[in-house]
Each structure stands twice: as structure tokens, then as C-alpha cells.
Nucleic acid binder design. Sequence first.
RNA 1: GGGGGCGUAGCUCAGCUGGUUAGAGCGCCUGCCUGUCACGCAGGAGGCCGCGGGUUCGAGUCCCGUCGCUCCCGCCA
Length: 596
Amino acid sequence: MKRTHHCGQLRLTDEGKAVALTGWVHVRRDHGGIVFIDLRDREGLTQVVFDPQYNPGAAEASHALRSEFCVFVEGRVRHRPAGTINTKLPTGEVEVIAHKLEVLNPAETPPFEISDDTLTSEDLRLQYRYLDLRRPAMARNLRLRHQVTMAVRNYFDELGFLDVETPMLFKSTPEGAREYLVPSRLYPGKFYALPQSPQQFKQLLMVAGVERYYQMARCFRDEDLRADRQPEFTQVDVEMSFIDREDIYAVMEGLMKRMWKTALGRDIPTPFPRMTFQDAMNRFGSDKPDTRFAMETVDFTEDFRASQFKVFRGTVEAGGVVKALNAKGFACATQGQIEALTEAAKSFGAKGLAWIKVEGGKWNSPIVKFFNDAEKAALTAKLKIEEGDLILFAADQWGSACEILGRIRLLCAQYLQQTGKLAIPGDRYDFLWVVDFPLLTFDKEQSRWMSSHHPFTAPVEEDAPLLETDTHRVRGKHYDLVLNGSEIGGGSIRIHKPDLQQKIFDVCEIPREIAESRFGYFIKAFRFGTPPHGGIALGFDRIMAVLVGSPSIRDVIAFPKTAKASDLMTQSPGDVTARQLKDLHIRVAGDEAKPA
RNA sequence: GGGGGCGUAGCUCAGCUGGUUAGAGCGCCUGCCUGUCACGCAGGAGGCCGCGGGUUCGAGUCCCGUCGCUCCCGCCA
């Protein structure tokens, strides 16, 4: 048995050829005498005809075919009779008239249709993932992911990067995300951790003189999941020596260009725009702004400093800010939508949500009676208020006010899209570098400074002297790559001198002995001629989800897990035997008597 | 850890303020059918209404709990 062609391959120019095809029965159209089969493999569909006049044996056997039977067919390519050409299929001008049929394996009736048209529930798809992946859309996603992976590898290879594999069995670094732990058999009570990223190894590769490293790196985080977060995921991990931020931007912009060209045939413009963290928060209320639409947030702190409206005045007196945005054309918001926005604002930490509907030439609002003419004039001017607009406010400390209004902005955009008042083209890609993040943020719970990104991020040179005096003003050489309002990558120029590193630990009040036990080997390495270096990691699954136009990264991962981190197909996580636990020196709490 | 949505035939879903024998489309099975491609026609099978408890004369429907899927908040250095 040897197939000669794929099912998406045959054309009119192949007419007369003897061919052999393998594949799955996509649909069967049995006319009693003549039988048509759409034969499917990963490359496409071909119509196979079983005609009793041409070959009675094969025709007889074909009546037994059912959906998803795996079959082998031999026959001859012929052009379809006039009037029976199917213009919807690339192979629609031809058909294969069969003289031999072999059923390689019959199939039970599948639990759901193998089709892109009917959407089956997620749990059933995951339980029978091998069938789900037969659906043309999913097969296409797998293939596109492969093609983009190849583009990434070729790109980095051309630029002289080395693909270096780093260990999966690593050491626990409890500073960051919760880790998956792996118990050690040889060292009772000790554990490895699966890497949440190869961060330290890639920096050590720079110490090792690799100079340019990349890896399609598997990473693991034991945190709660989202549509764009899986417990294990893939990063395009990059690190370079003797560079500064501009080099990273250029290399990554070239990479994105290559990925988009490969996947979509699109030429995306570079360089990408850049925005400071301050600007992003002030204008969009987010450190990953969606710049595909405007609706920017505007500061009104000074305008309401002496306002009659106590909520605003009080916030300003307490050192907070008043911000507002104009949801253009959303005065039509229903009571329910206003309530939903208010609830959302509250869930993000607001005490309430003030609003003004501009309808019939009037400002319809529970709070407008507190506003004087100057305040109204300021609002009108700065927000360009017109008939039909909806104005929304947030008053809080700067960070909170920005974030609350930023979320409200996104929700309004969603509503406006539903009502057709805002249109975002599906093929629009707004890339953006967000830069100048604060190096450290003050953690109220622990009452100490913590790294915004990670503790190896270098400060901007001119800010470094302020580390001890004006800590909050120190900017880090950190950068995030944002696409359409979602973070698809982030990285930084690293600290490469032990004394500066120690200073950061000191400012963060990390005791020397803890720093030593956790990062000692790492800091030590920096005493042996460490080159200046920096890097970035891209969320490859997220990028692929954007490229295939899917809202969830599950659609670009062959075997993903559920929102509760289980695998419905293999039923994992699962039990282990008492013997396994014993070998690993593990006893499960409250479960000692449980038989294996 | 918290909040929202969903769970009814193999699949997708309908089932009103509780009220006879729980429906539809697709799929499946049987028969007929030689140019279909959403093939057609006729007939048929198929239900622990997620699970457990409660309220009630009576529960798919109301209440409590629980499990699963999903979206979001927290979390993700």
C-alpha cells in the first residue's frame, strides 16, 4: 500500500492518472447504486466515486462505509461530468473513480461531527481531542503553528543565535509564580521545581559566552488559568550580550515581521510605536493599552480641586486624582448596562461609578447638579462632549483611578462594538512597546519595595543614584511588547554587576543570607567577567492565538488542559501507587490510610 | 479564594408563572434511490432532564448542597 497523492492535491491536469489515496470518510452520499465519498486527509478533500458499472466489487463494499472510517482507495482521476463541478472545493473539478477499496480501520460513530460548522462543547472536544484535531480548522492551527515555529527558528539562525536547551528540573525560586514541584527520590524531603521560565539559565549562558541565545522554551506556572493562560506554555525565549534596549527592539520587530509574513502574508510596519508606562496609564488606564480605538482617559484633578461635589474634592484633598473618559455615542446605554459598568468598577475596587448622559441637549446625571459652569466648561472642552455621549468618572489614588477607568474603557468599547457604534477590523494589529516601567513598586501588604518585573532588571542609568532616596522614581530598563491590548512579551536589560545587584536586594530588604541561598550561584557568576546583556520572552501561544484569530490559546495547543488544570483525555492528574509515594518519601496529608 | 454563565436524546439546543405521555434540527439504524456534494424519500430507535438532598398533592422547572465545563476578579517576580 502506497498512496500516490494527498486528498487536496488532484487537479484537472491529473486527469487519467491511476492514483491511490488514504484518508478518512468525511461524508458519504449513498444513492443506492452510485456512491460518493468525500475522502479527507490533512491536506484536503477529494470526491471518490463508486460506480457498480465501473467496478461492482468496490461499489458493493462502499455501501458499508461510514463516517470517519480510515480507508485506502485506488482509482483513476477523471474530470467531473458537465454540471457536477463543485466550485467550493479546490479539487472540485475532478473525482476519483474507484476500483479498489480497503477499509484500514472502521470507526464507531464519533461523539461529535468532525466539522468546522457545528461547535461542540469544550469538555467533549478535550475528552476526544484526537477527533477534535481532525477538524480542518484545528488541523490548520497545528500546521500554522509549525510554520511559524520554523520561521522563528530560521530567523534566529540567520542572525547567529544558538538554540540551547535548558533544564526542566530546576531549583525552586519562590519569589515569582507558584511552581510545580518535583519530589526527589535520592534526596528525601528535597524538591526540584519545573521552570516558570529559563530566566537564570539564559543569563548564565551569556556569562558562558554564548552571546546570542534563543529557545522555544516550555514553561510551567501553577497559577489559576484564563483563556490565555495554561499551566504549561511556550515562550520564545531570547537573550543577547553587548546590547542595549534598541537592539532588542530591532531584533524583535524583525521577528514579528517574519511571523506575520509567514502566517498571514502580511507586511506589518516597523518600528513599533513606543509609550511610557506613565502615558499608558494616564491615557489608557492600562500598562497594555489597546490602541485600536481612542476613547482616552483625561485628568480633571485640578478642575475639581475645589468642587462642590464632595466625592471628587475629597479624593483630591487625599492626594488622589479625578479622571474621566468620553464613551462616544453611548448615551443610549441601558439602565442595565450602566449597572453592569458600575458593578465592574466596584469589582475593580471603585466605590461607585459617576456618569453623565448627554441626551436631548441636557446633561442627564445624578451628580451634575454639583458642578459649576467652570467645571462643566472644562469637561466639555477636554472631552469634546457632544450630543449622544456618555461620560464616566473615576476618583481615587492615581494608579487605582487609572486602572478602574481603563477597565471601564474596555467594557464600553465592547458594548459599543455590540451596538455597531464602534468597529475594529478583525485584521488590525496594533503593536506597541511599553517602556520606562518603575523598577520597584511598594508592596503595602509586606510593607517593602518589590521588583516590578524581576530583581535582575537594570535601572535606567541616570535614575540609579535615586535608588535609596527617590525609590519610586527609578525607571527600569524593562519593556513589554503589547499587541491589541494584550501583553505578548516582556523583558529587560539585566544587571551584570554584583554590587548593583546587591543594592537592589538591599532596597527590597531581601536578607543577605536568603539572597545567598537562593541566588548565590547566580550572583557569583557575575564576578567572572559578565558581559552586559538583556533579553525578552514572547508568549508564543498568545501570538499564535492572534494569528489564527482565536480567543483562547487552547485552540493552538494540541493537548491543552481545562480551566481547572486537568486533562480530560488522559484523566490527569491521577492517583499514584503507595510504592511510588514511598520511593519519593511523600505522605499525603489526611490520607495516610488510603489504599493505593 | 471570590463572582457570573452553562449542564435536557450521540451532538446543538427549545421546554413560560411548578401541572397529562419532555420536543426540534442534525446525527444514528432499517428500507428505497445511478450524479450527489447540507443528496433525496419513507419508517424507526434513542432521555437517571449532571449528581445528592429538600419544599410540594405534583419538580426538567423552586430551594440547599455537590460535581463538571467556561468567562472574569484576586493571583500570574
